[in-house]
Each structure stands twice: as C-alpha cells, then as structure tokens.
Amino acid sequence: MRSRLERLAREIAKFGAVGAIGFVVNFIVFNICVHGFDLAVVRSGVIATAVAIGTNYIGNRHWTYRDCDRKRRSRELSLFLLFSGAGLVIENGILALSHYGFGFTSPLADNLAKNVVGLGIGTVFRFWSYRTWVFQALPARVAVETAESFLAAESRRTDAPPRVDAQP
C-alpha cells in the first residue's frame, strides 16, 4: 500500500511539474493574444490552451508516463487529444461564463477565471483521464518480461571478464 501511494505521489509531482510549464505557456500565450493581438478572450483562451496541450503532451509522454505502453501511440495520442479537448472546453467554458455570463471583464477577472478556476478544474479532469485512459501501464506480464530481460542483460554485462586492451 505504501509503495502504491509513493508511486502515486511521484506521478502527481511529475504531472504537476509538466502542468506548471504548461501553465506558464498557457498564461503567456493567453495574455499575448488578448493584450498584444487584441483577440477575443475565449478565442485567445482556446489558442493558449491548444499550445499548452502540445507542450504538456511532450512532457507527459517523455517524462511523467515514459514507462507506459508505447505500442499503441496513435491510440494514445487520439485519446490524449480527446481528453485534452474536453479539458479545453471546461477551462474556456468557465472563462466564457465569467466574461460573458457574469460580466467580469477585467484582465484580472479573465485570468482568474481561466488560469485559476478553469485550469484547476480542467487539470483534475485531465489527470484522472490521462492516467485512466491515455497513458496505460504495461501489462504485468510484459513489465516482468522487460525487467527480467534487462536484469539478464545487466548480469551478462557484469559477469564478463574484464577486457584487456593491448598496449602499443
């Protein structure tokens, strides 16, 4: 039980670190689109979230979930985009509700709605969906076979007699 909790804590920490980078990307792109290019807030939010989704996929695939099954990469990417799209709707739906529904239109209100409330709820949804559906662990049999073959290769490597190079 303790090892499972420690593994979950490491996974959450890695997911959070990748998410923090995605947050910075999302925040910067959102504010550049709104204030630099004068785009509508929800359009800016969608653009920023899409850029952050790309950043997060790279981080999650190659760091957080690097030990997960890689054989069905197209399925993984399709599900990642599907669940990320649902998170995008959650995140930017809250922004739209705040901005257009409640009339909170200041830059601070838009950033709080999108990057605190929306992103917070979207992140919880994404974490659950990624670990449940997208980045699936290797089946136990395959994981054991992989570990055994690695250990056997290491054993052969360390059992080999030391190599003596001829001196000129």
Rank of each mutant, 00 (worst) to 15 (best):
I90K: 01
K71L: 10
R4I: 12
R156Y: 09
Q136R: 15
P162S: 10
W63F: 15
F83E: 11
N31K: 01
A86V: 15
C33L: 05
V164C: 11
C33Q: 03
L77T: 13
E154W: 04
T55E: 13
H62A: 11
W63Q: 08
G122A: 15
R70G: 14
S129P: 09
V124K: 08
R126I: 11
G19L: 07
T55M: 06
G54H: 08
L39S: 09
A140K: 09
I53P: 04
Y57V: 05
V42P: 04
Y57M: 03
I28F: 08
A152T: 12
V116M: 05
H99L: 00
D67P: 02
L77P: 10
N115Q: 08
A160M: 13
I12T: 12
I53G: 10
A20I: 07
N60W: 04
E154Y: 03
A140M: 09
A40L: 12
V124D: 05
G59C: 05
L95Q: 08
S98A: 09
G54N: 07
I58M: 10
Q167E: 14
G103C: 02
R66K: 15
L88H: 06
V24W: 09
R131A: 12
R72E: 08
T146V: 11
V164P: 04
S84Y: 05
T146F: 11
F102R: 02
F80H: 07
M1I: 04
K14Y: 14
N115E: 01
R163L: 14
L5G: 08
S78M: 13
S84N: 14
L119S: 05
A140T: 13
P162H: 14
R141K: 12
K14T: 05
V144Q: 12
Q167S: 15
E154R: 01
V25S: 07
E154A: 11
W133M: 13
I47N: 06
A9D: 06
N31F: 01
N111L: 01
